[in-house]
Design a protein around this nucleic acid. Structure first.
Lengths: 125, 125
DNA sequence: TAACTATATAACCATACTATTATATAATGG
DNA sequence: CCATTATATAATAGTATGGTTATATAGTTA
């Protein structure tokens, strides 16, 4: 599959999207929003950090068009704009999973070849 | 589609992967490697930054298992470990594309409704 | 072994970014 | 109009990170 080379400006946009997703608290927020909108105070109930911190990160997510917002009375409800976010996280997760599996495979190979067994087949400490 | 909530530790892993991809130079490197391995000096020829900088970023990519390396004589060849990287970039690009399209649509709607035309149908400055 | 090439590391600076605390703004209810 | 609730902003401090320059390491060749 041939892929076009992106110019620096475009890569900077891409990098910027990744940067937005590179902060655990923001992923927590997006995770909380994955099944529908939530208000700031609801998010504060779910995530262990200060309210100003949550508001700040929401602002960043909003600035990147990753979430929309809508005000109802006193409250502001945020929701995810584009399911892209979850696709990205899923992909990364699957990548991490693969890496883990590789490590587990290596480890189990090592532990199969190394351990000395007694004649009964039981492991020996 | 129901999705499991990831614990903080896992989200930190995910965030970390995103962080690695959040730097334009690193994306440039990965882009250069998308059609096969290249040595550090080849990368230096393609990317406008210092050799130590490239080596440093390669080390980071290697540490994250995003690239493998192999030494041949004096040179070290790096290659991409997992096509995941490009899938991620493609997704982000498509997201950016969608945003752009949205903006273009809005813009063209505005410019259709606003401009005053002269009786000849030409635009008026 | 000396000179040369390729890559990696170290030290440094400048910048950017996150989390906290305190405060401001805005909507609601009495 | 005041008190309360919900959200946003400002200021600060601490940390992390990218890029540069200089230097070290290691392989190659004469």
């Amino acid at each position: 599959m041939r892929r076009k080379n992106l110019d620096l400006a475009t890569l900077e946009l891409v990098a910027n999207t990744f940067k937005i997703l590179a902060v655990p608290v923001r992923l927590l927020i997006l995770q909380q929003l994955q099944n529908g909108e939530k208000s700031v105070s609801q998010l504060c109930g779910d995530i262990a950090t200060s309210q100003p911190n949550i508001s700040k990160h929401l602002k960043i997510l909003y600035g990147a068009s990753l979430v929309d917002k809508r005000q109802v009375g006193n409250s502001v409800y945020y929701e995810i704009t584009d399911p892209l976010v979850h696709k990205l996280c899923d992909l990364v997760c699957s990548g991490i999973q693969k890496q883990l599996n590789r490590k587990i495979r290596v480890f189990s190979t090592l532990s199969k070849s190394q351990p000395k067994k007694s004649k009964t087949g039981r492991r020996v400490s």
